[in-house]
Design a protein around this nucleic acid. Structure first.
Lengths: 198, 198, 198, 198
DNA sequence: TATGAATGAGCTTTCATTCAT
DNA sequence: TATGAATGAAAGCTCATTCAT
């Protein structure tokens, strides 16, 4: 009621600007609490509008999450498959592969709140009927596919190795978050990636 | 639809029996939905008693979680440090280390609901002030310590390798759950463990 | 019994109308049971809306009480200090003082439900951390101050006499309520006031 | 659960000792919170036994209150009517009456927790169907009767004056409690009593 | 584009009480 | 004389959502 916290804009915004602003804030709040434990009331308050106002843009709480994931998907496409996927047709050297994985992790290391968001949602989405379930199923498969494709020339069992890279990357990220980013995520990644690619 | 679902006993039980029964059910329900999203109402219903009756034994929802974690901790001590810790004073051969890690994962593979529970809670506990936060911080550290100790004789950077083993194991488990246990967790683990230990 | 009881409108109202309606009903219900023993569930029902609907306007049970007290304060300012305070600069004769005190009590005698409200809350607010504690501390002080100011020219120990007037007035009111308004509050007050002002 | 607060005796006591101990504690807790807002759970905890154990002695929460009031009644009979009532047949001088009223208030001033208990209950008992309702109705009448009897020889309107004394005494006590016993209750009482008895 | 009133369902927790032991 | 398991009812409050404006 009376603490008022931030209270930003409160102005009437253009549709797309408002949506973007909400998604930005949703990334923060869901990254802090997870999806189920965060309330759209609070999200709305932080965005400086009413719950009803927020719902006007996304229809439902789930709608916010879906929009957020789609939005992130577009951006991640630029980051990940933008790095790996575009070269999919031409073979990359082992060094080039390592460089790209390194780049991915380095970018993550600079955005811990996004890493948090994914780490928390990834596990939360394991519960049945979770609205992000399909998204992560698809997303993990896609990442797996990309990894497998680029390392194919360099390892015997590309499929297994791809899985290992993915597992190690996500596992490290969770450790890193738990320890409050206290170790050098990129350095640790480079070590394990080198091992896993022989 | 059929809300009657389970509706067991409804009888009067002895303290420890009731507590055990509740914890067993709590593992299932928290493993299905996570802690925050599960309600003690439903837990109580599934256990065949009232919410107030359940609270009589644990005091609060958080009390159930803490009791559950402590209980699991005792059992896991037998499973993990029972395998690794007891031999801590005497050096294990590389083969022996792999055998033990294999045993751990094999045991997990036989209890997917427990793996789920930990996978979900592990991530959920990343949120600030989560009641399981301290537990997982300590638990991950302990596991890390044990791993580091047993592999010490066999690798150059035991600390980094221990982290890698832990990350890969947890990462694989999440993948395994997401794909509905559709791949052979133990086999995949053996591959990655072998690589990470040179 | 008949649980339907009142069940009024159930319509959509404007903010201030709704707030006023709720406060009116809150005065009745708190005057009947006291604050702690009354439930906002019942208050809401009597007002013809949901608990959540009621909470939409006041935020919490305590919020209702605070709003109620503030609202009454404004009105009482007209009644009490409206009678006494406005003449504070110019000295009142002993007769005029008695006339004003008489007027206050006569007004109270016409609103027994309000007298009840104050009598019950005044005592309930003695418990530690009661939400109305600060309110009554301040309110009693203010009344004391006003009494002291107007009687100052007419008695030796204005401070003691002010306290006596206040005590007698409140004590009489409680007796009057206990005996179901069976005696003439105003007459009894006039007698004691006359004595206390020599 | 784990704070344990005081945890006294916990031994098996004789029936009457236990009842006394509980009533002593009940006076404190009801004097702090009032009757409705205090819970027999907490009362039991403070007494060092179970809720069920406590109920074994008094049957119900209301039973505790009734027992407490009866118990106090016996003691107050010694204090009040012990002072006033015993001399009822023989007339007291005005000085003697003042001395006795003085003695009553002085005794109260030494037991603020008891004054609190009565002040809070007296108002709380105004609510309909309050278990202490009948008790206070009767008690106030008795006090009124005693006051009227002893002052009869000294004032014109004994009935009105008795009411005034009673009102002033109770009103002063409430003020005294609200201000944390910060003024001299007995001195203020002597002033007002002297005035009310001419 | 957004608000404000209102809801229904649900939440955790507290409470007084019962009953077998 | 007391305990411990268990209950039914109720409490205050939060949440996602709807609808008229």
């Amino acid at each position: 009621m009376s603490d008022a916290e931030v209270l930003p804009e409160r102005t009437r915004m253009h549709k797309d600007d408002r949506r973007s602003a909400i998604i930005v804030e949703a990334i923060r709040i869901i990254g802090e609490r997870g999806y189920q434990a965060c309330s759209i009331n609070e999200l709305a308050k932080r965005c400086g509008l009413t719950t009803a106002g927020l719902l006007h843009h996304f229809g439902s709480k789930e709608g916010v999450l879906i929009a957020l994931l789609k939005e992130r998907d577009r951006r991640d496409a630029d980051a990940i498959s933008g790095r790996l996927g575009l070269h999919r047709d031409q073979d990359l050297s082992r060094e080039q592969v390592l460089t790209m994985l390194h780049a991915i992790v380095r970018q993550n290391a600079g955005q811990p709140h996004l890493v948090r968001l994914y780490a928390i949602l990834r596990a939360e989405a394991l519960v049945e009927n979770h609205p992000a379930g399909a998204f992560f199923l698809e997303r993990e498969r896609a990442t797996f596919g990309l990894f497998a494709a680029v390392i194919e020339p360099h390892v015997a069992d590309a499929s297994a190795t791809a899985r290992q890279l993915q597992a190690a990357m996500q596992g490290l990220e969770v450790q890193w978050l738990r320890e409050n980013c206290a170790f050098d995520l990129v350095a640790e990644w480079d070590k394990v990636a080198d091992k896993l690619l022989h």
